[in-house]
Nucleic acid binder design. Structure first.
Lengths: 140, 140
DNA sequence: TTCACTGCAAAACGTTTGCAAACAG
DNA sequence: CTGTTTGCAAACGTTTTGCAGTGAA
């Protein structure tokens, strides 16, 4: 992670954690699955009925920009949000759509190899596995 | 098709590959960059002015479903299409948005490692590198 | 004739934005 | 007071769908 002088001081920005933003963050962290914005909205409404869709989206963007959560995009469906911000990878079940986190060792070497192959200066690598989750595998 | 009494010198439709679908496929294959659906539409219109947006989308879906091209989704922007259907990876420039293909050796082992870590039965792995392309790297 | 495909428009979907009111510093 | 954030609705960009008409077999 690069921290330069042009980057705003994060502590100062953390002071901008309003009630709505804190709630959105709590909801994402509490959900075991990776909720979509709509699911976050539904859940947040239970605790703060007045919250609007726009505020949920704005909060998600704010939290993402400040590194407090991650946005996961796969396919053209709705983005999902992940309260775990450490580097990790995702697996998506092609049968039920379930999305799980997993950790793959050796990603530093992988990133370097990918950067060399692409002739890019690497910033990050995103690895997604598509397959059958354990439950759907049994159903077959 | 509404306009024009057209001559019937069309080649036979090979296995559902209609004129429009063939054109869409040609356009995707001819573009060096990975075009979005809108770009495919613009290009296709030059050769077949009557073609509609819906037909371009339907054709892209058909071609994708039949393995003749690949859809690349990253972030919430428009999907891009790739005429190369062999397994390969993608790199995206965080500065200019350019998308390039690259080949990473050892993806079979990588897939197996990822499947083991995720406890999934693997179908495919998608690896995307985000970084700076050679041109943008120099501009800095 | 039959049936899949096309073109058009409108709907659907996820997300962002304009704006006035409410709020925090 | 000044700047930020909220809630609402409306706009936006992308993709899909309903339907009537067309064309190929």
């Amino acid at each position: 992670m690069r921290v330069g002088t042009k980057v705003k001081d994060q502590r100062k920005n953390l002071a901008g954690l309003t009630r709505q933003r804190r709630l959105v963050l709590e909801v994402v962290r509490a959900e075991e699955s990776h909720p979509t914005a709509a699911e976050v909205f539904d859940e947040a409404r239970k605790k703060l009925p007045g919250i609007s869709f726009a505020t949920v989206y704005n909060s998600l963007r704010y939290l993402k920009d400040h590194g407090l959560l991650r946005e996961i995009t796969f396919g053209n469906g709705a983005s999902r949000y992940d309260g775990v911000t450490d580097r990790h990878d995702h697996a998506i079940c092609s049968a039920c759509g379930q999305l799980v986190d997993f950790d793959l060792p050796g990603t530093v070497a992988l990133t370097r190899a990918a950067a060399r192959a692409a002739k890019f200066q690497a910033e990050s690598v995103h690895l997604t596995l598509v397959g059958l989750c354990p439950e759907c595998r049994e159903d077959k």
